[in-house]
Design a protein around this nucleic acid. Structure first.
Lengths: 218, 218
DNA sequence: CATGATAATGACTATATAGTCATATCTGAC
DNA sequence: GTCAGATATGACTATATAGTCATTATCATG
């Protein structure tokens, strides 16, 4: 059973460290969202992962290195969700609706990652040395949204305006979900979102001077 | 010169401790918004205030006590601004417009207080023991907005829905200003806000104005 | 089943910050 | 100008967390 043995090689020895690393990242994500990035300690993380403290330092320089990795992963996933649009959008309203839905599902299904992104953004705003490496993922995310929006806002629109629109979407969505929803049950969240969705989409559509009725001019 | 003497009494002796306290609070506000609540240290605060470390402990139990006070003051000021509406609003659009403007001016004129409220809300969400005393001010703030909105959304609306509406306004506003505006100059902020203001107010108010007809939709 | 190589460990030291308190300073009254 | 009460101070101790590393455990290999 050579192949079996080779399999074991991969899954046991080579991958043991990798599994440990993943365990630490998962624990760190939990601890960061529970206590806050700055308040979390290395021992909080290793205890949650059921590992020795020294093990942490075999994998990461400090907690901000894990946090930076996690922010990168979370952005990757959010960007993937933004891209995965079943039906090709034909109007600005379509795009905005999809963006809102994708963020909403990310918020519900990956709440810890969502809240981590929220915290990370605050760090970036504070321009702490620690968060230097964290900024790039957020720019990727904003660029992705710009890329999705730009075909529907006309060639002559100032790119700066598109950037602001992307920022507005991110701000509203993150603000609403994380700031407003404190203490709400999921049922409440769902019933709060649905009716507001339309207003949100319409509001942002007209930000560019295109009301939903006025079809997005390519 | 009795009055003069009494004046000195007030400003020198009786008020020395109070002036020191205010100095510490001001320094704490700066440090909190610069480094983040959890990352800030007592010595950061006392150095900024140009005072000895022991002095801090004569006035506050720990940094979270100052933070809690500061959140209270900031909410007081924001609520005052919400109340101070020159012309009595006659429509929902008026109220929403005023709410947006008041938040916007608070964001621009008292940016540190605004950012502190943002951070404090995150603490409240995390339900850290430290933030127990911090929750009440936010409820006052939400209640104030509910109070302003309720006359314009119909008598039969479930109070819970008004609460959600107030939360939505707060979420959008805080999210947009603090999350989206990272790295923007004030000029950019201003030109981003103006067109968005109109569409936001218009669509949200038209949505809310029709609530009574769409019973149980929010 | 012995072996080398990789990974994990937690007791340990180092460091940073919290929190205390005896002393010094300030202030207005007399 | 000195006294008493109030206030501020920073050197000090205590504590919590970071970060290290000699030791132990795991594991594929021959």
């Amino acid at each position: 059973m050579v192949s079996h043995t080779e399999n074991l090689v991969r899954t046991r020895s080579d991958k043991r460290a990798e599994r440990t690393r993943k365990k630490l990242e998962l624990a760190a994500l939990e601890v960061f969202t529970e206590y806050g990035l700055d308040a979390a300690t290395i021992e909080d993380i290793t205890q949650r992962a059921d590992l020795g403290k020294g093990t942490f330092y075999r994998h990461f320089k400090d907690k901000y290195e894990v946090a930076t990795n996690l922010v990168g992963f979370a952005i990757d996933e959010l960007v993937l969700r933004l891209r995965k649009n079943e039906k090709q959008p034909t109007t600005l309203t379509d795009v905005l609706g999809h963006l809102l839905d994708a963020h909403y599902h990310f918020f519900v299904e990956e709440n810890e990652k969502f809240m981590l992104l929220f915290q990370g953004r605050l760090l970036v705003k504070m321009e702490r040395r620690i968060s230097e490496q964290m900024e790039q993922p957020y720019n990727r995310y904003l660029e992705e949204m710009e890329h999705m929006l730009s075909p529907f806002v006309g060639e002559k629109i100032d790119p700066m305006k598109i950037r602001r629109l992307a920022g507005a979407v991110a701000g509203f969505v993150f603000g609403f979900f994380s700031f407003a929803m404190i203490g709400m049950e999921f049922g409440e969240v769902e019933s709060s979102i649905q009716p507001l969705r339309q207003s949100f989409v319409r509001s942002l559509s007209s930000f560019l001077g295109h009301l939903p009725e006025h079809k997005g001019s390519l």
